[in-house]
């Protein structure tokens, strides 16, 4: 019995866009970035038990049991209207489940023969470092699940020290490089990208870097502007890496982000072309923009 708890926003049983093959994806609550363009901002913060969503929930699927605790959430009553997250004053979500590693293994077992592996995403999955490490270790030790690959989808902010502790039980990592320049990254996410670059270097060196993801926001991100510098750095530190280009869309975003321009097919294609001209071979543009 492994009772380490994860705070889980959502589990998807069949995803085709979160690493190789078909994958069960676990979205962990909580992120240390505050990206203006976040497409699921309700995963950023942990519930502070303010109970405001209880009153506004149209079918009363949320109930106050204890003022000091997050409201009780009933899936049976929920109609999926998302009123709670749209009105949440702190970018959180009252529908989080606390799930132990053992419970998670049971859940994964049900779907094991349909999937190639699992991916932890978020939020920022690595903030729940203990849970992720313990879950991956448990999967590797379980005779029925050890064939599943364990992937992490991350903003890259975890320190190399911590990556070192995860590296043996992790099969691949997708890292977001949200901007090349420190200042642009800071403006976009609220944090510098120094650790992201260290993460990319470390994972590439240990053959665990599955993909670097670039989110193109026209006039905001600086990939094209700084392409020479970025390309030469990636060739030096992450030679042969697969690059996935995502184009920024308004789907899921709120507030100020709606004022940011959406990426067109042309925008993502120009970035792809430029990367090809800089000798990158393995480039894909995410499905919705093809």
């Amino acid at each position: 019995m492994n009772s380490i708890i994860g705070k889980i926003n959502k589990i998807i049983h069949f995803s085709v866009v979160d690493g190789p093959g078909s994958r069960l994806v676990i979205f962990l609550q909580g992120c240390n970035y505050n990206c203006i363009n976040c497409h699921n901002p309700h995963t950023i913060n942990h519930c502070n038990s303010c109970q405001e969503c209880v009153v506004t929930c149209p079918p009363s699927a949320l109930q106050t049991i204890d003022e000091q605790q997050p409201p009780k959430y009933s899936t049976d009553i929920c109609i999926g209207c998302d009123t709670c997250i749209s009105l949440c004053p702190i970018n959180s979500d009252p529908r989080i489940s606390e799930i132990s590693v053992t419970e998670m293994l049971t859940e994964i077992s049900k779907y094991a023969s349909f999937i190639e592996g699992i991916t932890v995403s978020g939020g920022e999955a690595t903030l729940q470092f203990k849970f992720v490490k313990s879950l991956f270790e448990a999967i590797k030790q379980d005779t029925h699940l050890s064939h599943l690959s364990c992937f992490i989808d991350t903003n890259g902010s975890l320190q190399v020290d911590k990556w070192r502790q995860l590296i043996d039980v992790t099969d691949g990592v997708m890292v977001d490089l949200k901007a090349w320049d420190q200042q642009v990254h800071l403006k976009l996410t609220g944090k510098s990208n120094h650790k992201v670059k260290e993460t990319i270097k470390y994972l590439a060196k240990h053959n665990k870097l599955y993909e670097v993801r670039l989110l193109e926001i026209p006039t905001v991100t600086d990939y094209l502007l700084r392409i020479d510098e970025m390309a030469s750095w990636l060739h030096q530190h992450a030679s042969g890496v697969k690059i996935r280009i995502n184009g920024f869309r308004h789907h899921g975003v709120t507030g100020k982000a709606l004022a940011l321009p959406q990426a067109t097919k042309q925008d993502t294609n120009s970035l792809k072309l430029s990367l090809q001209q800089h000798q990158f071979e393995d480039i894909c543009i995410s499905g919705a923009f093809i």
Partner: peptide
Amino acid sequence: LEPTVRGNPQAIQQLCKGAFN
């Protein structure tokens, strides 16, 4: 299946094998 699966036929393969299983 959604069109995003076009970039990931292994996922269809996995789904099929799980189904037979």
